[in-house]
Design a protein around this nucleic acid. Structure first.
Lengths: 143, 143
DNA sequence: TATTGTTATACTCTATAACTATA
DNA sequence: TATAGTTATAGAGTATAACAATA
C-alpha cells in the first residue's frame, strides 16, 4: 500500500544521504590522515573524558579495538590517557590542546563542505528538516 | 546570525543521523558477515554489471582495493567476474543468484530495522522528509 | 602510450582470547 | 569474582607502486 511505499522511499533517501555524508566525512578525514573512526573519536572527546570501555560503547566497537586507536592518536599527540582518581583500573581519555585545535578545524571543514548544499534550502526548510530528523535519533529509535 | 546557526544545527542533525543509519547498516552487515563496503558493493550490483574501475569509482576506493573485495565475495559465491566482450582487458562484475538472494534479504532487513522509527512519522511528513533530502543528493551537491 | 586489472607490500581497523591489575 | 584495560593474533579493508595484458 501507499504507506509502505513512502517508508520505502524514505529508507532509500536516508541510506543514500548516509553514504553521501559518509563520503564527505571520509574525504575530510583522509585529507587529515584520519579514518572515519578516528574522526568520531575526536568528536566524542569534544565534551567528554570517557574511559576506554565507555568510548568503545559509544562507537559500537570492542574495547581492544580502542587500545590501538587510542595508541595511534596518542602517538600523534591528539589525545592522551589520564588516571582516574576514583578507580585504579580505569583510564580517562581526553583531547590534548593540539587535538582540540584539530577537532575544531575539522568541524569547520565539515561545515564548509556541507553548507553550500544545505544553504540552498530556504531557512524554513532547514529548520523543518532538523525537526524531522530529530525524532529518528530519539531513544527507542532504530538501534 | 540565525541563518548560520540553522545550517549548523542541520549539519549536526545530518551527521548524527548518518552515524545512526551507518550503525544499523553495519550491524545488519555484521550479522551476515559482511562489512559496510561489501554491503554497498552488493547494493550497487543490484542493477549494474560494472567494471572494476567503475565500481571503485562508485565507492571512492582504489581499484586495487576492489580486487581483494571482489575476491573475497567471489570466494563466497556472492558475485562473479565475467568477460567483457568489447574489451579484452576489462571485467564485468555481477551478482550470482545466491548474491541476489542475499541482497534482497538484506534490503528487507534494513527496511524492517528502520521502518518502526520511520513509521512513527505521519505519512505526510515522510514524504516531506524525502523531498527535503532529495536536493542534497542532487548533482552539484557536496562531493 | 594509455587503460584495465592484478599483485606485492605495508599499515589501519576490527574481533576473539588470554592476560594483568584493581575492585 | 567481576571489571578496566592491554596484548597477541588473525583477518579484512585500504592505498601506493610495480606489473602484465590489451587498446
Amino acid at each position: 500500500m501507499a504507506s509502505e511505499d513512502s517508508v520505502n522511499a524514505l529508507v532509500d533517501a536516508l541510506v543514500r544521504s548516509t553514504f553521501h555524508v559518509t563520503g564527505v566525512l571520509t574525504r575530510i578525514g583522509a585529507e587529515n590522515d584520519l579514518s572515519l573512526t578516528q574522526l568520531r573519536v575526536l568528536g566524542i572527546l569534544r565534551d567528554r573524558r570517557p574511559g576506554v570501555t565507555e568510548l568503545a560503547a559509544y562507537l559500537g566497537l570492542d574495547k581492544s579495538t580502542l587500545s590501538g586507536l587510542i595508541d595511534r592518536a596518542e602517538r600523534r599527540g591528539l589525545l592522551a590517557r589520564g588516571k582516574n582518581p576514583l578507580d585504579g583500573r580505569a583510564v580517562e581519555v581526553f583531547l590534548t590542546p593540539a587535538g582540540r585545535e584539530l577537532t575544531q578545524r575539522l568541524d569547520n571543514e565539515i561545515l564548509q563542505a556541507l553548507a553550500p548544499t544545505l544553504g540552498r534550502l530556504p531557512a524554513a526548510e532547514r529548520a523543518q528538516l532538523v525537526g524531522l530528523l530529530e525524532p529518528l535519533l530519539a531513544p527507542g529509535g532504530t538501534g
